[in-house]
Nucleic acid binder design. Structure first.
Lengths: 205, 205
DNA sequence: TCATGTGAAAGCCTTCACAGCG
DNA sequence: CGCTGTGAAGGCTTTCACATGA
């Protein structure tokens, strides 16, 4: 895990993987860059450049070998079983959990947390919900590296420090606030509003 | 609405707007690019370049006038009251709805849709839920331009054509599938998995 | 001096153009 | 030919460097 791939390539590898997992059911052992591209709405040359970075080679007559490709992509993307915790089991958190559990997913959600005592101790879709106070212990114990943050904005100031102390190195942020994190922790924002604003701008163009 | 702004600038304008709306409560009429930048975790020069595109000017001693800035940003971003429909009132759709309704939001969610007859006719957080069959009529009647798509993957093939026929020009896609849309319709993907995969890759770097 | 305003450089990503091979 | 493989060009975004003005 040393050779850094371009950021956009990483995002697409994730798409390729999911698509190939479905494609595998067709019992078609090979796929053309062109077909992969069409199914994702991108250009074939972009697919080939991405796969070039992985060091995989295609066969000029048959295309790329699906299983080899899947293996190579999964090698390069984060470890298969990386443990993820879900912070905030409100309606959004719960629906994200269900969404994850329902799909073929290389990451494992290992625990959920909430401040509502009515939720602590219960199990949601097979995942136990703990109080925020036990976050540090459980993250350490499960060796979780990623947190999904789905709490109300007012709770962020109180909860973020606990997450950072726990050793979490990546956060998928569903709140509308900017998270101030130390160097080395990475944040990806998933708040719907910015996306909607962007769409609203471009549909009037 | 003709002068096209750079794509990343548009996304940031949305962030500036939300931040400034909160900042306004401080009764501080001016703000420095440097402060705006710090609160969002970006560089001040990026903020100034963005604001340059809007044609606003700051005062060298006081910074930018907050209310003028807000006005100019809202002018440039999509029309204030753009109507949005929510397709899919499962747990994810419902939580997105609640998330939107709960926050200061320049876009209006005007209707929801689901295939489940048990949901049709009910009202969720003040928004009526209709059957998919009436999507075309209601979108036309409300002049909605944007749809949020939060349905199971298996339903996409059946529902997407209805959305495209209805005149929707922008889709925020929460499904894991690539949406094949005609030129002129814009799609932004919000599926959590790709973001998680990307995070998982970078935390091991 | 400190903040804005701005052209130019640097960096990153996509697309083009074409070589090479079955 | 049609596909893969790949350097180079082109476009977009960020960052640098510095002019300007209170």
């Amino acid at each position: 895990m040393e050779a850094k791939l371009p950021r956009h390539t990483v995002m697409r590898l994730s798409l390729y993987r999911r698509l190939l997992l479905k494609y595998r059911y067709l019992d078609e052992p090979y796929i053309f860059s062109h077909d992969l591209a069409r199914m994702l709405g991108i250009k074939a040359v972009k697919v080939r450049h991405d796969l070039m970075q992985l060091g995989v080679s295609g066969d000029r007559r048959k295309g790329y070998h699906v299983n080899s490709l899947l293996g190579r992509i999964s090698d390069k993307l984060g470890r298969q079983g990386e443990a993820v915790v879900l912070v905030g089991m409100g309606m959004l958190g719960h629906s994200l959990l269900r969404h994850m559990q329902g799909s073929e997913n290389p990451l494992r959600i290992v625990a959920a947390f909430d401040i509502d005592p009515g939720k602590v101790g219960k199990t949601f879709d097979g995942i136990p919900c703990h109080g925020i106070a036990s976050l540090t212990d459980i993250v350490a114990q499960q060796q979780a590296g990623i947190a999904i943050l789905a709490i109300p904005p007012d709770d962020v100031a109180g909860v973020l420090p606990l997450i950072l102390d726990s050793g979490i190195r990546g956060i998928l942020n569903y709140t509308s606030l900017h998270l101030d994190v130390p160097e080395g922790v990475i944040v990806r924002n998933a708040d719907p509003m910015a996306s909607l604003d962007e769409i609203a701008y471009y549909i009037d163009a």
